[in-house]
Amino acid sequence: MNRFPLSVSAVAGALVALTSLAVLAEPADDTLLIDGEIEMTTRTESVEGHPLPEVISGWHYRTEDTRVLEQDTFDNPGMLGVEAGEEIWNTVDGTMGKSCASCHDDASESMAGVGASYPKWDAANGKPTNIEQRINHCRVENMGAEPYAFDKGGQKPLTAYVKHQSLGQPLALDLSEGDMQTWRDKGEELYYRRTGQLDLSCATCHEKYNGKNIRADHLSQGNVNGFPTYRLKQSDLVSLHNRFRGCIRDTRAEMPAAFSDELMALEVYTTWRSQGLSIETPAVRQ
């Protein structure tokens, strides 16, 4: 981690502070109801020990044009990825002649609630595991198929498809399993650690300055209930670890590898912070 002279951090801090003076923008007063029927919890009381009194979905920080896209599963471009995931779910792959459906049948039943309960403790490996890793584990062990490389192949669409089966359900993390508590604490330490030339931590933008603007971007709380997310910028699904790496890159720090211990700890901690919010996958964001 590079430590630059105080002046650089002062400039970085001043930059954020200056932009914050220009506006104190509240998250939008709006309700997310998908397809006119699925009620989404996008604002809720935070869990015990949370530094903020209320957790708010990133949906509220986007413009009306962007928010509207998520209200309708037809208009939501992320659903194209979910549909691609459904096709993969039903496609045989690997040496054992199986598809996901061969064992898991109808995902709307077998995967209901699953996306809302990850990351989970993986006793065999002695660390937390997420949906992407679970998928790869299944592919290798039960299908005789190659694991997906990070963000490649079917990883994003299939992860989005699985998590989408929990649409509307509140994110919940079980810290009692294995060493989850330790990983959560490690993630917390990383969340507050300032890194990079710009000397910023996750907390700088997402806890201290959420609701303010950094340049023209309306800073959210950085909750993770919508991943993989359809980002207008990429016009594609973006995974959580890609977003972690992107944010860290933008502070001009070295990026940890996807699914590294560091990023897994961060995933556990940010999931802990986001508890109570409905799974929005695929969320639509800028």
Binding site: T19, A22, V23, A25, E26, A28, D29, D30, T63, E64, K212, N213, R215, A216, H218, K233
Partner: peptide, 21 residues
């Protein structure tokens, strides 16, 4: 119409091309 969050943005805008696009 919902209240927009435009005020700060207006001040920050130039005609420079958005980096990503």
């Amino acid at each position: 119409m919902h209240p927009s969050t435009n005020l700060g943005r207006r001040r920050l805008l130039g005609t420079a091309a958005a980096a990503a696009t």
